[in-house]
Design a protein around this nucleic acid. Structure first.
Lengths: 204, 204
DNA sequence: ATATTTCGAGACGATTCGTTTTGTAAATGG
DNA sequence: CCATTTACAAAACGAATCGTCTCGAAATAT
């Protein structure tokens, strides 16, 4: 057994580590997954290819970590809790949809989709890590709304979260970046809250 | 000028054409996009690679047409119209979700996603062709429901259609095939129709 | 000082895409 | 019947890229 304590030998360069991820993100947002090569990632990071493969097993793995480390759907954290579920989530969903107006963000999401397609065995895990935080935040805030008596207690919160995340993913993958429609977020929220809202005059 | 009439030379083999698409589908459902090669497609189809590239410009194009020709989300056609929007669409959505229980179908959808990732310039068109028919059917049936007075006239039908298609895509890409949950379709429909239904006592 | 580990740089083999070549088969025009 | 034209199957080929491997230098512990 190796005693705990400092390892011998040259220590790992965290600077190189970060430079690789950043390089991958840059190439992804500028040229997309297809036009990006491992040689280019290493070169732009000022790093040997060996250093990349020492820490990641494949191109898809590098891209996946670069995307997940640099862009989380739930970036900015959980939705606020002002006591008004509807207002809180409306603002939150709107903010996330707004992030998709930046082509760099949709490029990252498409990059993750490409990485998932490239490594089918990791696809499920990648999509989960991409959408998991947002899903959990949504469900948590909705559940709080139910406890506060603002939402109907029999609502299927998981279905609502899937609808939001699914619409987001669909929009990021299948909609042209030019067709920016911020009101899409409102349309979705309108629709969902019509069904989620607790009918007036229900026992609290 | 060439007079109209029969083309000279050996005519194109429709049999080869079909064999190529079928071969691509088979390889896609068995091994996925990553493990499928153009040589394998041609060999399994009993066709020269030249014949493949004569009619399709790239691997992604072959896969895309194979998927879109062999699997449409709206396969089976439009939802029925019994006069009850909710029942019609519930059955229709359920049937489509049911198709995702077949791993072959999710493999085809993932194949299209891979093809889109491989040819980013064609990605938008591919996703539109994949989801377009289902979207149109949904919106059409919902609009009929509005005309029939069953759904609220101010509902955002596009948002509802996006929610359904988005959830479908999300499920196909990010959910493990084992976790079959047919009730997901019902949960989604419950949620949406709560919001879409015309409140009782509204002027017709 | 020596051993150990990572570093940047780059050569290397294997795989796969997409092109090109070669000889053959199937159709039309004269 | 023969020339022309187009598609066919098979396979060789070049270019690109992935992932591995080698090399000498740098950094750290003993």
């Amino acid at each position: 057994m190796r005693m705990s304590g400092k390892q011998r030998g040259r220590p790992r360069s965290d600077q190189a580590h970060q430079a690789i991820l950043e390089s991958a993100r840059d190439l992804l947002t500028s040229g997309g997954y297809e036009r990006m090569t491992m040689d280019a990632i290493a070169a732009r990071a000022g790093v040997g290819k060996q250093t990349v493969y020492r820490w990641w097993p494949s191109k898809a793995a590098v891209v996946a970590e670069a995307v997940l480390a640099g862009y989380l759907v739930a970036e900015g954290g959980a939705p606020g809790d002002t006591g008004d579920v509807e207002a809180d989530l409306r603002a939150w969903v709107r903010a996330i949809f707004g992030q998709l107006d930046d082509p760099a963000n949709t490029a990252l999401i498409r990059g993750l989709a490409a990485a998932a397609a490239d490594r089918e065995s990791d696809a499920l895990r990648l999509y989960r890590r991409l959408t998991g935080p947002a899903r959990e935040h949504l469900v948590a805030r909705l559940a709080a709304g139910v406890r506060e008596g603002q939402l109907r207690p029999d609502a299927d919160l998981e279905a609502a979260a899937d609808a939001v995340v699914g619409t987001l993913l669909y929009r990021a993958l299948a909609h042209s970046p030019e067709a920016v429609r911020p009101e899409e977020a409102d349309g979705l929220c309108d629709l969902l809250f019509l069904g989620l809202r607790r009918p007036a005059g229900t026992k609290t």
